[in-house]
């Protein structure tokens, strides 16, 4: 496809709608994704995506808008995942897996009952540009704005809860409510991303831009903002690539968006490794002497150091040192020298 043809395609109405939806998705998904990565729940979005498949199928079966049934089912699934995670302690991941597979299997089965078959579901699993109607773009925009407003507005609280729930609880924050809020926002952004990236790849847009931006960022806030920028670029760029390739073959936008985001990660990763290494090398050795006490009297130590005193012995030139309270003792007349 020539550049002129591509420009012509990008100028079309349906493409403009898709670009707007992609941009909002690319901004909202990494914003909530940063908190999910902070809580080490990178696969939560994936789980919610699987559950949402059932929601889409219910929409197809009943003839209502799949966006709204997906929102409802995804929120229910996210709340259920969060409750299981909170109650189940160590084995939460097994319960989550049960839910994921149940969601996917239920979705495929119900779609079959609806008579649409796999093709009907395909649009929602991997995204589709052409199928987005203008009302759906407005839904997407509205939901994305809700996600962005709540995440950025409550950033200090959500950060405190995500980084140290126990401290947050003692500080009087409602940890459970905030955790549920993050789960619900994640569910909403999954459904927001459904039309562009698709349910099976949605988690990538929540996690990969965050992984990329944390290669270079040092603070939580800058990680979040850069992840949003990278997410927006990947979503819009991936959509354009998919449109450009569509002259030759049918390409869903989901895979191209995710591959572009991964390419950005691959490009920044070596830079991040190099920067961290440089920072470590630049770090000075800790100043000695501040905490090391001088020689002290033997009578501070009620026993004679020896083979059985319990203090590890370390050979040092012509004598033995004994490790004691983080420093080494060498018996020297009436006192111990610090070695």
């Amino acid at each position: 496809m020539s550049p002129a043809e591509l420009l012509d395609l990008l100028g079309r109405d349906f493409m403009q709608r898709a670009l707007l939806a992609a941009l909002l998705t690319g901004l909202a998904a990494p914003a909530i994704g940063t908190f999910i990565v902070q809580r080490r729940l990178a696969l939560l979005g994936d789980g919610i995506g699987h559950v949402a498949v059932t929601g889409v199928a219910l929409g197809l079966l009943t003839g209502t808008s799949p966006t709204w049934t997906a929102v409802v089912v995804a929120i229910l699934g996210a709340v259920l995942i969060e409750v299981i995670r909170e109650k189940g302690h160590t084995n939460g991941d097994v319960a989550l897996a049960l839910l994921f597979y149940g969601g996917l299997a239920g979705g495929v089965l119900i779609t079959g009952l609806a008579g649409d078959g796999a093709a009907g579901l395909q649009v929602y699993l991997f995204g589709s540009v052409t199928s987005i109607s203008s009302t759906e773009v407005w839904y997407t925009a509205g939901l994305a704005l809700v996600v962005l407003t709540v995440t950025l507005g409550l950033l200090p609280q959500l950060f405190a809860v995500a980084s140290d729930p126990e401290f947050a609880k003692v500080a009087g924050l409602r940890v459970r409510a905030y955790n549920l809020l993050v789960a619900v926002l994640a569910a909403v952004s999954v459904t927001v991303a459904m039309r562009t990236v698709g349910l099976l790849l949605v988690s990538a847009l929540m996690v990969v831009p965050v992984a990329t931006s944390q290669q270079l960022a040092r603070s939580f806030r800058s990680t979040l903002l850069w992840a949003m920028v990278l997410g927006g670029v990947a979503a819009v760029g991936g959509l354009v690539v998919a449109a450009w390739l569509s002259a030759r073959a049918t390409v869903a936008p989901g895979p191209s968006i995710v591959l572009l985001a991964l390419a950005m990660f691959a490009a920044t990763w070596p830079v991040g490794v190099w920067a961290r290494r440089r920072r470590r090398l630049a770090e000075p050795f800790p100043a000695l002497g501040t905490g090391t006490p001088g020689p002290h009297e033997v009578d501070e130590h009620p026993h004679q150091h020896g083979d059985d005193c319990g203090h590890p012995a370390v050979p040092h030139d012509d004598h033995l040192d004994y490790v004691h309270d983080g420093h080494r003792h060498a018996p020297h007349g009436e006192h111990y020298d610090e070695h």
Binding site: T34, V37, Q38, R39, R40, A42, P156, Q157, F159, A160, A162, S163, D164, E166, F167, A168, V170, A171, L173, V210, Q214, A217, R218, S219, F220, R221, T223
Partner: peptide, 25 residues
């Protein structure tokens, strides 16, 4: 409250100032 160590760093980098600021909430 100062919990037992090991919870200062999460999955995302955060600066010393950000962590300290969360105590101001």
């Amino acid at each position: 409250f100062v919990p037992q160590r090991g919870t200062a760093a999460g999955g995302v980098p955060s600066s010393v100032r950000e962590v300290v600021a969360s105590g101001r909430l």
